[in-house]
């Protein structure tokens, strides 16, 4: 239990740092709203190591911290909608047999974008934003694949190490 709290603190810090790193990157390939989703590395990892509860906790802590540090009310709202939606979709994708971490991550990336877009459309009450949906779907697939590959490797190596050394303490 003590180890778990320490791990979660560590991962929350890691997620916040990754969010900061991402905020330093210029807008990805020139289209606003498209982000790599580096913090999803951590979320996917937690989801595999623990369960959705821990992943949700880290996700919310991360979004609030990043939002207060670098964002505004709207960026917090967008992130919460995208983050929570993608988390639960990834959780259910993991339950369905036949999907690897790549598929889980792609589903997460795509639904993250969808969640954000719907909140954006709601906030500005302009459903013309749906023009944006195809762009965000494709970008969700691409970034989801990238993040999925990396988090798959992390899970294979770091995850195996953590589980081996903390079997009963997790």
């Amino acid at each position: 239990m003590k180890n778990k709290i320490a791990f979660l603190g560590l991962f929350a810090a890691l997620a916040i740092i990754l969010g900061y790193v991402e905020s330093l990157l210029p807008v990805f390939i020139g289209i606003p709203g498209i982000k790599l989703g580096l913090t999803n590395l951590v979320i996917v990892f937690i989801l595999y190591l623990y369960s959705w509860k821990e992943a949700l906790l880290i996700s919310v802590v991360r979004i609030l911290a990043i939002g207060f540090l670098f964002g505004n009310l709207y960026s917090i709202l967008f992130s919460l909608a995208g983050g929570v939606l993608s988390l639960f979709v990834m959780y259910f994708m993991r339950k369905i047999p036949g999907f690897s971490v790549l598929g889980v991550s792609v589903a997460g990336g795509v639904t993250h974008n969808i969640g954000q877009l719907f909140v954006a459309a709601f906030v500005v009450t302009n459903f013309k934003l749906m023009y944006y949906l195809p762009v965000l779907l494709v970008s969700g697939v691409v970034t989801g694949l990238l993040i999925g590959m990396v988090s798959g490797e992390i899970w294979k190596h770091v995850g195996a190490y953590i589980r081996k050394n903390n079997r009963e303490k997790l």
Partner: peptide, 28 residues
Amino acid sequence: MKKRDIILVAAVLILAGGIWLITRVFFN
């Protein structure tokens, strides 16, 4: 990458293409 992953990616890409076409044809 498993088979279902590929199906998922293909499905999302087709969906994106479909929405793009629909918005092109009907609304643009």
